[in-house]
Design a binder for these strands. Structure first.
Length: 846
DNA sequence: ATAGGGTTAG
């Protein structure tokens, strides 16, 4: 880099002095300063401007030899045509360039190009002949030859003007040879064969942008440019923006766009580029806005851009914008082809904008474009209205082949199914099934169509799917039999959907029957088929069946889904069968399926549930040796188990282990520890952890606060509980009914029933209903407070809201005691009698 | 027609 800038400095200096000295840059190459510093971009085609009649004649001579030689190829290695050999002393770069551009094939041109270079000592290639050749190879996309040529240029020692280098780089860029372009650029500079100028850089950037765009490379070249003191212009920034667009670097692309906008460099190309990118990013509104801005400046998109945008807009579901664009396109004088109509009508059908779709159809016809079967089936698929169907069927040219008619019927079936008209779909399918035995009238009754067709597999697929979605499994199953009766082979999709639905209805035996049936008819079950059945077995807790299915899956190479295996483990564990669950996981391993850490976590939780904490710990420790690492959730499950077993030290050690393994404790982890401390009388530890949480970016949640409110009330610190409550709300954490109940219950335990009642009212205002134990807690607290009136008020609310504790509830006896108290007191005894007579209190209470 | 699962509070 240093050497380069010195060189540049020297050159500038010498230019200033207007010296015409030659400068030795390379051992073999002498360059004229004027050539080196030419800042003009020069294209190869000098042939048009050749001025020497002599050269023209010579070129004609070469071309006629090269193209009229039918006896033998002109360049067979050992015997070049004697005519050519005779002419070879006249070779000059101008002549070669002229011949090259006029030869009819790249092959001939390349042979001639190579031949000319061997005519030493009379001839050397120049940048113009190299570029003429490169241009031919690039246009005919002869990538490997072009690559070889680009590789040869630096070692040929031929010097290039910056314009020539830029041209060559563009040839490379046009066929995606970006690496080669970069290599060439650097080599030419290092070897002193060219001093690249801003034009060269612009060409290089353009090449980079063509290849999807390597942002790092592009930014490096930009930095280089700036370092060399080159100004950026529109030809610099357009490819830069394109690279950012391709890389989805939204902000950077916009920044470049804004710069260009400020400089007035935004042209059609830039607008189109950005609009297309916006469309690709799903920002249809922005894309549209750009197009309008463009129009405001009197610019028009080209046809291709219109098409791509319309397709993109429809794909993003913005059919309205697509239609507006379509309108603009026609106003710009472009005639849309049928594929645009197809995509627009497809989009309108998806949106159920059937009127607009139909008006497009009439517009097409006015323009003399006949809607094809593809468009008509799209429309039919979205209609279930009989007269509409008839009208559309009228559009179909009569001479359609059989397959096409089936396609059209299937579209009608799709239309019915889409609108949930299963009876219509089923009946039409039945008419089709019976078409061979039925009469023409039958089908005329349906649509006035003369042609009779029998349904194909797709027809059945459509109706069966519709019936399944509509909960008509049994009717769908009869269609499977209809298929077999008329010898239509069900496909995998039909089998899979039926089996899946049977499994969801717990009709396992029938699923198996279908599975065997498909195997017999040589339709291979997929992993979906097997997993449907496996899932059903898991839900049933059928361990043996699940194992058998796993064996079958093994033989097909189908993986069981994690959610199913985990469900089985969980179901077993929920019923206290954790040991069986563990055995099942071991058997899975035996079958060669490594269960997921989630399934193992469920099993560990199950062992803890049956108080086998040591077994749980063993499994937890085993996980790593089985190729798994426990994650934070597994740790949480284990921590809870240890806490439940009063093994606090081990639990806290696990917390350290989480950190040691590079995991980080989750909010749940902290909640568990807080709960543990609260229950063990170390509320202050718990409070300390609360303040630590925010610092670690683990924001406390409603469970954290609820746990602490409960803990503080247990520690007889109602005021602290209330301040935690307030802190929770000030942090924007909304209490749920469990939180309210914890606070109300806690305040009651702290003999603060009046405060507690206020929160019950707040809770009720938020339309949350308290459980009966809350009423009982308030009731007891008021009674201990000897506030019989408030106690009775709560009691009455409890009775009225149907929250009287059940007889097996431990609060039942408290309620009964309260009734006795109320009966004995004059202030309340009559009211109790009324309630009893109304049947609101169990009569035997008295 | 197809991933996704296991843990915490009254």
């Amino acid at each position: 880099m240093m050497a380069l800038s010195t060189l540049k400095l020297k050159l500038k200096l010498k230019l200033k002095l207007k010296l015409t000295l030659t400068l030795t840059l390379h051992t073999h190459t002498k360059l004229k300063i004027s050539a080196l510093c030419s800042f003009f971009s020069t294209t190869t085609t000098h042939s048009n401007t050749l001025s020497h009649p002599h050269t023209l004649t010579a070129a004609d001579a070469f071309i006629s030899i090269l193209t009229n030689n039918q006896q033998q190829p002109p360049f067979s290695p050992n015997s070049p045509s004697p005519h050519l050999t005779r002419l070879s002393p006249t070779l000059s770069p101008h002549l070669v360039e002229s011949v090259l551009t006029r030869l009819p094939s790249w092959k001939l041109a390349l042979s001639f190009f190579h031949w000319a270079s061997t005519q030493h000592p009379y001839y050397y290639h120049t940048c113009y002949t190299f570029n003429a050749m490169a241009s031919i190879l690039s246009r005919s996309r002869q990538i490997s030859h072009l690559k070889a040529l680009a590789f040869d240029v630096p070692s040929s020692g031929c010097s290039f003007t910056p314009g020539a280098l830029g041209f060559l780089i563009r040839c490379l860029g046009a066929v995606g040879l970006v690496e080669e372009a970069n290599h060439l650029f650097d080599e030419m500079r290092v070897k002193g064969l060219c001093v690249p100028n801003d034009y060269c850089y612009n060409c290089l950037l353009e090449a980079i942008s063509k290849d999807g765009g390597d942002v790092g490379l592009m930014e490096m070249r930009l930095k280089e440019m700036r370092g060399l003191g080159f100004e950026f212009d529109r030809f610099t920034l357009t490819p830069v923006m394109q690279v950012y667009c391709n890389a989805r670097k939204f902000d950077e692309a916009l920044r470049v766009y804004n710069t260009m906008q400020a400089k007035g460099w935004v042209d059609e190309r830039v607008y189109s580029l950005l609009a297309l990118s916006f469309s690709k990013w799903g920002k249809v509104d922005k894309a549209f806005e750009l197009v309008e801005r463009m129009e405001g400046q009197g610019m028009i998109l080209n046809e291709r851009t219109f098409c791509v945008l319309i397709h993109g807009f429809v794909k993003e579901g913005h059919v309205d914008k697509a239609l507006e664009m379509f309108d603009k396109m026609r106003k710009a004088g472009f005639v849309p082809g049928i594929s645009l109509y197809d995509v627009l009508i497809g989009g309108l059908c998806r949106n159920k904008e059937t009127d607009k779709a139909l008006s497009l159809i009439s517009e097409m016809k006015e323009l003399g474009v006949q809607p094809d079967v593809g468009i008509l089936t799209k429309l039919l698929s979205s209609f279930s209205d009989r007269s509409m169907i008839m009208k559309l069927l009228d559009e179909i040219p009569k001479e359609q082949d059989y397959e096409t008619i089936v396609l059209i019927y299937n579209a009608v079936l799709n239309g019915y199914v889409g609108d949930g008209l299963m009876d219509e779909a089923y009946n039409l399918l039945q008419v089709m099934i019976n078409c061979e035995s039925g009469t023409n009238e039958q089908i005329d009754n349906v649509f006035g169509l003369k042609r009779l067709v029998t349904p194909n597999t797709t027809s059945f697929n459509i109706v069966i799917d519709g019936l399944l979605k509509n909960g008509q499994l049994d009717l769908a199953l009869t269609l499977l039999h209809d298929m077999q009766r008329i010898h239509r082979k069900p496909n995998i999709s039909i089998y899979n959907n039926l089996i899946n639905d049977l499994c969801n209805s717990n009709r396992l035996e029938e699923s198996f029957k279908l599975l065997r049936e498909m195997e017999n008819s040589r339709i291979e079950p997929t992993h979906f088929t097997h997993n449907s059945i496996y899932g059903c077995l898991c839900k049933r807790k059928d361990v043996l069946g699940a194992m058998d299915m796993l064996k079958e899956m093994r033989s097909c190479g189908h993986e069981p889904w994690i959610k199913h295996s985990t469900l089985l483990v969980k179901e077993l564990c929920d019923h206290g069968r954790a040991v069986e669950a563990c055995n099942f996981l071991n058997n899975m391993v035996q079958e060669g399926f490594l269960p997921h850490v989630v399934s193992y976590s469920a099993a560990i939780g199950g062992l803890i549930k049956i108080q086998e904490v040591d077994q749980a710990l063993n499994l937890f420790r085993d996980l790593c040796s089985r190729g798994h690492c426990p994650d934070v959730v597994t740790f949480n499950i284990m921590i809870r188990g240890l806490c439940k077993g009063d093994r606090f030290t081990e639990a806290e050690n696990l917390l350290d282990e989480i950190v040691m393994r590079g995991l980080s404790p989750s909010v749940v982890t902290y909640n568990l520890l807080i709960d543990n401390w609260c229950k063990n009388g170390s509320v202050d530890n718990a409070m300390a952890l609360l303040s630590k949480m925010s610092g670690e970016d683990r924001e406390p949640n409603v469970i954290t606060y609820t746990t602490l409110v409960d803990g503080l009330c247990r520690a007889e610190r109602p005021n602290d509980a209330l301040s935690v409550w307030n802190e929770m709300q000030s942090k924007g954490c909304t209490p749920n009914r469990i939180a309210f109940m914890a606070l109300i219950h806690g305040l009651c335990k702290c003999s603060r029933p009046t405060a507690a009642l206020r929160y019950l009212r707040e809770m009720e205002q938020k339309e949350m209903k308290a459980d009966s134990f809350i009423y009982v807690a308030l009731l007891s607290a008021f009674l201990s407070d000897l506030d019989l009136t408030s106690a009775f008020e709560i009691f009455k609310e409890m009775v009225d809201s149907g929250s009287f504790p059940e007889s097996h509830d431990k609060n039942y006896s408290i309620a009964i005691d309260a009734i006795l108290k109320f009966s004995k007191d004059d202030r309340t005894s009559s009211a109790i009698r009324v309630l009893t007579e109304e049947g609101k209190i169990p009569r035997h209470c008295l």
